[in-house]
Design a protein around this nucleic acid. Structure first.
Lengths: 358, 358
DNA sequence: CTGAAAGCGCTTACAG
DNA sequence: CTGAAAGCGCTTACAG
């Protein structure tokens, strides 16, 4: 009746000890109905006593599902992806799923082969696709063709029925721009994010909308292309700050680039925020470790990942497609922004943090 | 003879199409001997044609192993852990293993339950344990008791037969200290790492050794306790720089804390490197994004993880315990260090990067 | 509310 | 060098 010591308990050991069939143990473990409360309690006691944990592979094989969720990402900043991983993992753990994270290599056709390789080898049940992969029409088509359930963490431009979690990138960028305008800035430089990311154009749109709303013209030479990495922000800022009429504020489309702007200012001996205000986007770790600390948009990265994973598991369970989720962002005002020189008399807004539903 | 479309090929489909038994297909796929070259080629062709990928769960169930490797870490900086993840994953992929990463929560007894929970639920084949978890005697004992194969990424102080990959923390710290002394610094502040990390005391030892070798006294008030996080570096530096005789150089036990030192210098309007040299350890992303860029010790994080994973898989395959691996580090000299004021006449060493085998 | 049987797709152990 | 049989530990599909 008792299992030998030092051997992993299996469902049969539990069934024997509880005096029931293995099917009943299975029912209890999977929270299926039609088990007497008394039976359920007894089984659970034995499970605990024997330290029984069902075999993932046996469950997978018999259940025709792997209980494996894949998370694919391309090349984001470490601080961002770690938050995503933690959020997704937290939700997976609650649902008895395991998370496999995978950094894809290469672009376009290579990308698809890479992702399909992952899917084929692990036979995973669903996929969490982060931006900008979530915006690749080819990839999405491929996943559709293979009938792989997936959820996207991303803003999205094209219509697709798969669920997604996102935030209001355009609105957030507009708010940040308005904050800068409110500080008296008129000549505001903007550094665009990576062209492959739809978020980049959305943030640019928000910037333009705010400028237009205040009747401010956008000079072409004050808008620079960046790539979401530190170096691209550094280079863009060097150019912006070397013109005959440099901006009094620079809004970079993410924190890494904003940190690059700070370095350019240091190089050129420009005082931030006295002579130049700098704003970022994301509110990752880097925003708090540079000098001066960055005013930025807080992106709810962990929650986006948790929520997206939740949508995916919901979809796997019910077979229905859940509604997309939009999460709130907020401005975080720190020491990298200040009233424009010409507007120094104007009192600095007393905003520490402005919450905003997208 | 042909499988229905849109259904995943299984071993039987391959065997049928190749005109062999499934056992032969299995042999080919697992690189077992005793297959005619001709047969092997034919099977491989069919495998490719049918896009056959063996089921992980079936292999696991029949093979009594999960092909799952766990990686546990506590609370390191994002930039560090992302490198570790990529290194470990790269090696896992080569060996047809999947990597499950897991951030442990809580301390001591809770820690053990957390790790055992992971092990029990996934039935993983082996574990990669990063510092400081690799230094927890209780955790190691628990893993031993359960006979779970594991490898450590860490310096280690106590004797244990399990393999590990590490670098020469003490030697690296000594070299960095000597570099600072070479710049003419005599009053050098030191910020210790988290007390739970053995690397912390090794780096401190290296610092002390270099100071002693040059006949320099270590004033107690110039050595501060930190915790490997940005804020602890900031606070320690505020204290160090507020004394009546502040140091002319500060060596922080990692980059995050060194970034904190830079911020303290900015706050106090101290010019780095003219009036204060700052050195870090690790060479993570943050070392290149702060102003001025950090002189630091390059830690081969990706390689350490890759190598450690390699040792683990080797151990799983051969059943023997491989020798530990020690990887090379090197000093990376950037703009955060300069000759001491009193030694300004001394030419600055022309070292960009000094390679060193540990 | 409960259970006996079949089977998931592989590897192991053995036979030839 | 190759294969037929048994079995890994669960869930599915069905019966009662």
């Amino acid at each position: 009746m008792t299992k030998p010591p030092n051997r992993r308990a299996k469902i049969n050991d539990v069934a024997l000890a509880a005096g029931v069939a293995i099917k009943t143990v299975s029912r209890v473990l999977n929270n299926e109905p039609n088990v007497r409360e008394e039976t359920r309690t007894r089984v659970l006691e034995i499970v605990k006593k024997l330290n029984y944990h069902p075999s993932l592979s046996a469950r997978s094989l018999a259940g025709r599902r792997s209980y494996l969720i894949g998370l694919i990402y391309e090349n984001p900043s470490a601080n961002y992806i770690v938050d995503v991983l933690h959020g997704a993992r937290a939700r997976c753990r609650e649902g008895r799923f395991q998370l496999l994270s995978h950094q894809v290599i290469g672009r376009s056709d290579e990308l698809e082969r890479d992702v399909l390789g992952l899917v084929d080898q692990t036979h995973l049940d669903g996929l969490i696709v982060t931006a900008p992969l979530s915006e690749s029409v080819e990839l999405i088509k491929t996943l559709d063709r293979r009938a792989i359930p997936f959820v996207r963490i991303a803003p999205n431009e094209f219509e697709h029925e798969s669920p997604y979690a996102d935030m209001d990138d355009e609105g957030a960028a507009r708010e940040m721009t308005e904050y800068l305008i409110g500080l008296g800035h008129r000549r505001i430089g903007f550094i665009i994010g990576h062209p492959d990311h739809i978020a980049s154009s959305q943030r640019l749109r928000g910037f333009k909308a705010a400028m237009a709303a205040h009747g401010l013209e956008i000079e072409q030479e004050l808008v620079k292309q960046g790539y979401f990495v530190f170096e691209s922000g550094l280079e863009a800022a060097r150019e912006l700050l070397s013109t005959s009429a440099p901006p009094t504020a620079i809004f970079a489309s993410n924190d890494d680039m904003a940190a690059g702007v700070l370095m350019a200012a240091h190089e050129l001996d420009i005082d931030v925020p006295a002579d130049l205000s700098v704003a970022g986007f994301d509110d990752t770790y880097i925003a708090r470790t540079v000098w001066p600390r960055l005013t930025t948009v807080h992106q709810p990265t962990y929650d986006l990942a948790y929520t997206a994973t939740n949508l995916l598991l919901e979809m796997l369970e019910t077979g229905e497609i859940p509604k997309p989720a939009r999460l709130a962002h907020r401005l975080v005002c720190r020491e990298s922004t200040a009233p424009a020189r010409s507007a120094k008399s104007t009192a600095r807004p007393k905003i520490e943090s402005v919450a905003n539903q997208g």
